[in-house]
Structures are given as C-alpha cells and as structure tokens.
C-alpha cells in the first residue's frame, strides 16, 4: 500500500530532508526515508475509503493501526526534533480521520459537506423539525420526572433504539442519494446522542444519591 490515500499523485514535491522529488502522496521519501508532513485530506481519503456512509469498522481499525505503527511519534524517538514534530502531525491527522470515520455522526456530516451541504449539526443549530422538537420535549420531561433507575433505564433503551434506527435511516438515505433526508436523520441522531448523555448523567445522580 502506498498511501491509504487513494488516487492522486499530482506534481512531485520536494522532500523536506533531502530536497529530492517525491509524489504528493508519499508518506516517506523513497530516497532518504524521511517522514513527510500530512497532506490536507479528508477522513475518507486519509484512510483510503470510498466516501460512503457504510463502513467496515474492523477494516478502519486495521488501517488506522497499521498507519499509526509507521507514523506515530514514538517510532521516531531517536530522530531529530523536526522529524518527531512531523510524525506528531501525521499521528494527529490519523487520529482525526479515525474518529471521524468511526462516528456515524461525524461521518454523515462529512458526507454532507463533501456534497456541498452545510452541516445541520454545526454550532448554534437548533432543531427545526417540529415533530422531533415535540418528541424532544416529551422525553426530557419524562427524564426529569424519573426518580428511580428503572424509569431512567427505560428511557435509555428507547434512546438506544432510536440511535440504531437513525443510523439505519442514514445509511438508506445516503444510499439513495436523498441528502435532505440524510440531513434530517443526522439532526435526529445528534439529538438522541445528546439525550443519551443526559440519561447517563441522571442515572449517575440517582445512583450516587441512593448511596
């Protein structure tokens, strides 16, 4: 594998260490072996996956770990500070790509971005969907009223089921190229994830209160 990075080559770059020509996609200079700085790639390109919502989680793990094994700064402890800094940048880029591909929320947002859509879950976005808004209020009230663990668990189960449903719906929407629909499902998923956090907080509070 050259680069997980798929495709491109572009004009040759100069290696920062020996100054010789290398392809844009090279992780290491083929002449002097120096590690090269990360290129501006999105998560799919960096780990060499096609831009699809469905991903093979085990394959993501495998490629991520394989690349980290070659690029992580710990591989460069005996190298010059400059090489260590470059390796650190590479490791940061890989971690970012890994977190994006593994998380359906970030993955979906990236796919929408790739399609030229602004993310529906960016900063300061509020829920526009009236049905979801109603549901949100109703579940929040139920959560606030829940006084024992069983009641909280019940809401938790519902949130988990909705989470799975949203992910399936996202897959279907992206598969059919229905981006509006995908955008709506992404908003819903974001909401259920936030609620799951609140449920955990509530559960911890009840558990601690009970002693």
């Amino acid at each position: 594998m050259t680069e997980a990075a798929g495709g491109d080559s572009g004009a040759p770059h100069a290696c920062w260490s020996c100054h010789g020509p290398i392809t844009a996609a090279a992780l290491f200079c083929h002449v002097c072996g120096a590690v090269q700085p990360p290129r501006p790639l999105d998560a799919f390109a960096r780990l060499g996956f096609p831009g699809r919502f469905e991903v093979d989680a085990a394959e993501i793990d495998k490629r991520y770990r394989g690349l980290q094994q070659r690029l992580h700064p710990d591989r460069f402890t005996k190298r010059s500070p400059r090489e260590r800094a470059i390796a650190e940048s590479q490791a940061m880029s890989l971690n970012d790509a890994y977190e994006t591909l593994k998380d359906p929320l970030k993955r979906a947002a990236l796919l929408l971005e790739r399609a030229g859509r602004s993310s529906p879950i960016g900063e300061n976005r509020t829920i526009q969907d009236p049905a979801l808004l109603m549901e949100a209020m109703e579940v929040r009230e139920a959560l606030a009223a829940a006084t024992d663990l069983a009641a909280v668990e019940a809401i938790g189960k519902r949130a988990a089921a909705e989470d799975r449903r949203c992910i399936e719906a996202l897959g279907a929407a992206f598969g059919a190229g229905e981006l509006d629909k995908a955008s709506r499902q992404l908003t819903a998923l974001k909401y259920w994830r936030k609620l799951a956090e609140e449920i955990r907080g509530r559960r911890a509070a009840i558990a601690h209160g009970a002693g």
């Binding site: 050259t2 080559s9 004009a11 040759p12 020509p21 996609a25 090279a26 072996g33 070659r70």
Partner: peptide, 20 residues
C-alpha cells in the same frame, strides 16, 4: 522529476512502503 523523467509510475512504485 518535473520534466517527467521520474514522475508518474516510477515514483509511485519506488515510494511504496518505505518504513522510517
């Protein structure tokens, strides 16, 4: 390399898997 003597395939091939 820019003139093409080295660009393209050959670079891709040799660059493959250089570990540090």
């Amino acid at each position: 390399a820019l003139q093409g003597a080295l660009a393209g395939h050959r670079l891709d091939e040799v660059e493959a898997d250089m570990a540090p």
